[in-house]
Amino acid sequence: MTTLAKHSRSATPASPSSKPRGGFRQSGDLRIALFFIAPALIGFVFFYLVPTVRGIYLSFTEYNILGDPEWVGMENYQAIAKDPLFWNSLAVTGQYVFLNIVLQTALALGLALLMHQVAKSTIIRGALLLPYLMSNVIAALLWFWMLDYQIGVVNQFIDWAGLPRVAFFGSEEWAIPTQALINTWRHMGYTALLIFAGLQAIPGHVYEVAKLDGASAWQTFRKITTPLLRPVLVLVLVVTVIGSFQVFDTVAVTTGGGPVNATRVIQYYIYQRAFTESDFGYGSAIAVILFLILALVAFIQMKFLKGNESDLD
């Protein structure tokens, strides 16, 4: 609140000189500004700030939700450092994020280029978004059944082709790649749309010049499209990496962390400790660690990929 007031005051000095009734204007501005900011501010405070602060507090307690939180200091964090399942969940999540992001970004970039240069029809462009309109849970369950070992249609085709059936969700080797692929399928249309918007923002004359200079299609892509698209790509990467780290619903409705621990991703492990085993302090502590990891990842991405600068200037 104090920062808000400060901002509105420091922003006003320019106006009083031209407007004699500056005093009135000032408070009127503040009131109107607050009115417009209020919905976002209230949402932010109640749904982000308060839960975050409370989550950080709970991470230093032992709390089973039905009783009262009991302060235990760093105990949860010490236990997490020695918890093999936590380290396993980091490795599994890392594997998922890597597969998901590499595939999703590459495919989305390809799709965006196709949308930009070939598929100009709105229907086709719109159709690419269709998987994204489906809820995560539905998409996961749909593939869960289609990829079923015994009665799934995909394995039926594999069988007809004379190949051995694949336990897509049941085998430890396949479980994470399968889920990464499902979510790639669901999200790539949306990611492609973001990149496509970035492509449209690149001025046409740059391409014309490149053409005049006799640049090949590959050279144009390497030397013009990629650098000018960078700010959008960085934004897309930051958003998708954070989203990817938070994979939960797909796991929760299909494998539930199994087989053994192959899909016990970090968000699912948090859920398991907190909501299934009523260890909310421990769950909160892992959530805080995840928060720090994501903040660091986003910072590194912004810093080293210079996402807030554009080469167009």
């Binding site: 079923d148 015994q150 494998t255």
Partner: peptide
Amino acid sequence: KLETTVGAAMADT
């Protein structure tokens, strides 16, 4: 094998 039982319920198979 356990890996093949993830999915369809045992009664259905």
